[in-house]
């Protein structure tokens, strides 16, 4: 985000108790509201405020081929396919165009950390308020946005380990 928030994030990460308080607060909000799974790299804003990490395959780029005709999950037919719900809600909220964004590969180092603090530290992308995201230029430039993302993530998240003591 900005230099200031990065400094705040770094300060919080130097103080495990403070980190735990903020993380508990975040969970107190996000668990009841979104059934948050602490992935540490929240993309709720681009998935119509439904957490895709509930998917048994943790798919962040759309449903697999196994959604049942009634919109249930192939793995657990008692459960709705989370991507079915996301598309339904996105349609209602007029946020469908956000769903064709290719998400970055999941960074497993951030699992179980605070997405809020990761956001402040600039490790993850911010909230998408506009319904139409900027076009990615992956296909045109020929260089993989994924590779670029991973390398930049490596730089920025070098401070992450140990943050949650």
């Amino acid at each position: 985000m900005s230099k200031l928030t990065e400094k705040i994030a770094a300060f919080i990460e130097r103080h495990p108790t403070l980190y735990r308080i903020i993380f508990t607060l975040e969970n107190a909000v996000k668990k009841p509201l979104f059934d948050c799974r602490e992935c540490g790299q929240c993309i709720l804003s681009s998935t119509a405020l439904i957490c895709p990490m509930r998917c048994p395959k943790e798919l962040r780029d759309g449903p697999c081929g196994g959604t049942l005709p009634n919109g249930r999950c192939e793995v657990d037919p008692n459960m709705d396919c989370v991507w079915y719900l996301i598309y339904k809600r996105a349609d209602k909220l007029d946020r469908l165009p956000l769903l064709d964004t290719v998400q970055k590969p999941y960074d497993n180092r951030l699992r179980g950390t605070s997405a809020w603090i990761n956001l402040m530290a600039g490790r993850i992308e911010g909230v998408k308020l506009r319904a139409r995201p900027k076009k990615r230029s992956s296909a045109q430039t020929g260089t993989s946005p994924l590779a670029a993302a991973e390398t930049s993530d490596q730089k920025s998240s070098s401070a992450a380990p140990g943050a949650r003591s």
């Binding site: 449903p63 959604t67 049942l68 919109g71 079915y84 769903l99």
Partner: peptide, 8 residues
């Protein structure tokens, strides 16, 4: 092509 939702 046959899964739900179609747009997805």
């Amino acid at each position: 092509p046959f899964g739900e939702p179609f747009l997805a």
